[in-house]
Amino acid sequence: MPRRNGYSALQITLHWLIAVLIAAAWFTHEGMGRALEKRIETGASGIEGNTAHVWIGGAVFALILLHLIVRLIQGAPGPVPGSSPMIAAAALWGHRLLYLLMVVTPALGATAWYGGVEPAGEVHELFGFTLILVSLGHAVMALWHQNVWKDGTMTRMTKPQA
């Protein structure tokens, strides 16, 4: 994967769009059990019974896959110059965890919703909560970098670079 100084306009757009959609998915969830029960009661198929949460989750899944492909092609910047090895490792593994949760959480939701696999729905709820917590930690660290360490980290995700 090539190294860059910052992110492209497409990468930045995908990042913020996915962030907004994850927040929207969190605020539109009803709990997988209740949503599945409603769908079964009405006799709706998986697609007919789709809720806003299901559509948003599908969009997150599609966009995160696109984001990963774009990242493989365009690359990403390395650690902020001057970062300690511990901070660089924390950033690397924090991002890996975010990507894993952003792929697995909607995949589990789809498995539960369309496949009727209730245990997948329970894990989806747990992973969704974990995704929100890790995302909040990511946001807090971005603000910390910007306002305390003043190292320009957030600028890489707000101003496109070639």
Rank of each mutant, 00 (worst) to 15 (best):
M1K: 02
R3C: 07
R3V: 11
N5K: 09
G6Y: 09
Y7W: 09
S8K: 10
A9Y: 02
I12L: 04
T13W: 10
L14V: 13
L14W: 11
L14C: 09
A19Y: 12
L21N: 13
A25T: 10
F27Q: 01
T28E: 03
E30I: 02
G31K: 03
G31I: 03
G31R: 04
R34D: 13
L36D: 01
E37Q: 14
K38A: 14
R39N: 07
I40E: 09
I40T: 13
A44Y: 13
A44P: 10
A44L: 13
S45A: 10
G46I: 04
G46H: 05
I47W: 15
G49T: 09
N50P: 01
I56H: 08
G58W: 11
G58F: 08
G58N: 11
F61H: 03
A62P: 12
A62K: 04
L63H: 03
L65F: 12
L66D: 00
L68K: 01
I73E: 00
Q74C: 05
G75R: 03
G75C: 05
G75A: 08
P79A: 13
P79S: 10
V80S: 03
G82I: 11
S84M: 08
S84P: 07
M86G: 08
M86V: 14
A88G: 14
A90G: 07
A90F: 14
A91H: 12
W93I: 05
H95K: 11
L97A: 15
L98M: 15
L100G: 14
M102K: 00
V103R: 04
V103Y: 06
V104G: 02
V104C: 01
P106E: 00
A107N: 06
A107F: 14
L108E: 02
W113K: 02
Y114K: 01
G115K: 06
G116N: 03
E118M: 13
A120M: 09
G121R: 06
G121M: 04
G121D: 02
V123Y: 09
E125G: 14
E125V: 14
F127T: 09
G128C: 05
G128I: 08
I132G: 05
L133N: 04
V134L: 01
V134E: 01
V134T: 15
S135V: 12
G137E: 00
H138D: 04
A139I: 15
A139T: 15
V140Y: 11
M141W: 15
W144N: 05
K150C: 07
T153Q: 08
T153I: 03
T155E: 10
R156L: 12
K159L: 10
Q161G: 15
